[in-house]
Amino acid sequence: MDALSKLLTERQWILADGATGTNLFAMGLEAGEAPELWNVDQPAKVRALYNGSINAGSDIFLTNSFGGTASRLKLHNAQDRVHELNRVAAEIGREAADASGRSVIVAGSVGPTGDIMEPVGGLSHTSAVEMFEEQASGLMAGGADVLWLETISAPEEFRAAAEAFANVGAPWLGSMSFDTAGRTMMGVTSVDMVSMIKEIPNQPIAFGANCGVGASDLLRTILGFVKEKSNLPIIAKGNAGIPKYHDGHIHYDGTPELMGQYAVMARNSGAKIIGGCCGTMPEHLVSMREALENTAITSASTLAEVEAAMGGFSSADDGTSGVAPPKRERRRRK
């Protein structure tokens, strides 16, 4: 059994990590620079990123390889370094996890290719699988326990990555970003995602949501997953609030206290792997861990409770309420 599945059988919940980008920028990553290049150029800082999560109590953390597919690295003319950059991302993670003295899972982060897949866009299924496979094999060679497909919008891309992970025999989990009126950019609802997951031959260890809009929207998505029953553990990895602009500075408005509350609500609502995304710093994780440890599990939050505690939703409906928007009448063809 893989290390994550084992941990999930032993625990009622596990804490994931926070933001990668926000933390790396805080350490001096220049905007426009590829974070993945730091795996080789600034390994100490990448190690510090991982340690930040581990020391804050994370049980699983993502490697610095989100943009590690050839199509993303191409933007930095580093498309020939896919295996190397991913392998090193995982190697640094492996060392950090092994030095922690407890069971910490290294999850090889796999983000979207950035290309739109056929038939709407130009990326073919075969090329997508190839790119994901190349990244996956680098991450596994570097010692990742599992692969974590994250921030995906398109079901086609999700399936292509799942197929690639099967090809390299990697255990995996996957999350999508529900950032458009409660759906992914490509229109996938929380309920749609569960149906899609059920049909993937290479079943993930867990599935869920990451990034998106704010904590309220993310919790609504979790409640949507639960509606459409599945036996797999659910991931909740939401942003630390919503970015706000004040006098030339931008910060996420989610305080550590709020993120603690979010973590508890996510668990009550059915999530088992709980973490943060953009804007989530180690202090947020500490607060989340504390809240999870010191609060009893109660019944799932209602949408009204989520709204009262976390703020309003970005849209009135997330496509799962059963009230389908009226379809436009057509003259011919359905």
Partner: peptide, 21 residues
Amino acid sequence: IVGIDFRDGILFVPEVLLAAG
């Protein structure tokens, strides 16, 4: 018309891109 239904969450990116095509 496509834009209105995209705005209102009836159509999503894939449909809109096909329409734009």
